[in-house]
């Protein structure tokens, strides 16, 4: 099973053109680095289920990850860097340009589990009331204003229910409202499935950014020198932002073209190939599984055409009747030789 998978992967790798290989390797590297950073971030998380009120006045980000509130600003460029990676190398489609980064920042302020819970509940509430809000025929500003009020209402209600203080600054609320608006627009344009997929992408990207932001690597960089992080990311974004190759998602999108090309090329090379056969024919296997060639002459090499050559396929002998091997006898008792004229010499004609 595993070896089969490996051989399939090897076969795909051998056939891929450089235009496919390059973005794939880049995407893989980017993915691996981010995964490592996320793992570091998760390892750095001391408590998952904690309410902001349980830290007695200490900021959530500091209590859980040791990220000082004043350093929240420093991780912003890192978030921007990850958004650039996700967009132009992987091809993740999310609401807005830097929305995932802002959501990640909100998560940092509320907590690794409580953040998503608060965000989801407020966005879902927004989604539920949007249809009735649209019926009121407001302007866009009015609509967003009402949404902001509603989301704050939900937040206050959650504070009362959970008996805690959610440290929510102004922007997560506005980001939530914008998310609701984007989601609704996408829904109208591409349908519920595409919109939900995009919302999920945004959410996952935000979680990834959140954990990268609090990884040991990022924290150490900030601790070392506050100037290092913005400078490092600015240079990195400037270099990587010039990437002009395919995005990882585009390999999947345009795969039919490459497959079709390969099929045509193979057909040109081997015209006998069945049209829909994507894999090369394994003749050994085909011959082994083929039904017996009853009495057919098989000529597999020029030597087979030489006179006196045995070209007939050996017939399997299945004794089904005793009589088959005994001498045939007719009614008159004489041994029958052939039911044919035998011409041995000129005189017989």
């Amino acid at each position: 099973m595993l070896s089969e998978l490996i051989s399939t992967i090897r076969r795909i790798r051998e056939r891929a053109t450089p235009q496919v290989k390059r973005p794939f390797y880049i995407g893989l590297t980017v993915g691996a680095v981010i995964a490592a950073l996320v793992a570091l971030g998760i390892a750095n998380t001391e408590v998952f289920f904690a309410l902001p009120s349980s830290f007695e006045g200490v900021a959530t980000s500091q209590a859980i990850w040791g990220l000082k509130p004043s350093n929240l600003l420093m991780v912003l460029p890192l978030g921007a860097f990850l958004v650039v990676l996700a967009r132009s190398f992987v091809g993740v489609k999310a609401f807005g340009l830097f929305t995932p980064m802002l959501i990640a920042l909100a998560f940092l302020q509320i907590g690794p589990v409580m953040g998503p819970v608060v965000l989801c509940s407020s966005v879902l509430t927004g989604m539920i009331v949007t249809p009735s809000l649209l019926k009121l025929r407001m302007t866009r500003v009015g609509f967003l204003g009402v949404l902001i009020s509603l989301i704050v209402l939900v937040l206050v209600a959650m504070q009362l229910i959970l008996d805690t203080q959610l440290q929510v600054d102004a922007f997560p609320v506005i980001v939530c409202a914008l998310c609701v608006e984007r989601w609704w627009k996408q829904w109208g344009k591409d349908g519920a499935k595409a919109a939900a997929k995009m919302a999920l992408n945004t959410f996952l990207l935000a979680i990834v950014i959140e954990f990268v932001m609090v990884s040991h690597f990022a924290l150490a960089l900030i601790e070392w020198s506050p100037l290092l992080m913005p400078a490092f990311t600015a240079v990195a974004i400037a270099i990587l932002g010039r990437y002009r190759g395919l995005r990882l998602s585009e390999i999947h999108r345009f795969a039919p073209i490459w497959l079709e090309r390969r099929r045509q090329a193979r057909q040109r090379a081997d015209a006998d190939q069945l049209e829909l056969d994507l894999e090369p024919v394994d003749w050994e296997e085909r011959l082994a599984n083929a039904p017996p060639l009853d009495g057919i002459w098989v000529i597999s090499s020029p030597e087979d055409l030489a006179p006196g050559r045995r070209r007939r396929v050996p017939q399997p002998v299945t004794p089904n009747k005793e009589a088959q091997f005994g001498p045939l006898s007719g009614n008159n008792g004489r041994t029958m030789i052939h039911n044919a004229w035998i011409i041995r010499s000129v005189e017989d004609v």
């Binding site: 053109t17 450089p18 235009q19 973005p23 132009s88 091809g91 990437y243 002009r244 190759g245 395919l246 995005r247 585009e250 345009f254 073209i257 090309r261 390969r262 090329a265 193979r266 040109r268 090379a269």
Partner: peptide, 15 residues
């Protein structure tokens, strides 16, 4: 060529 080795043919969104 039938193998299309080295042929960059698809225009991606970045490009």
């Amino acid at each position: 060529p039938p193998s299309l080795e080295g042929m960059d043919e698809i225009l991606g969104i970045n490009m």
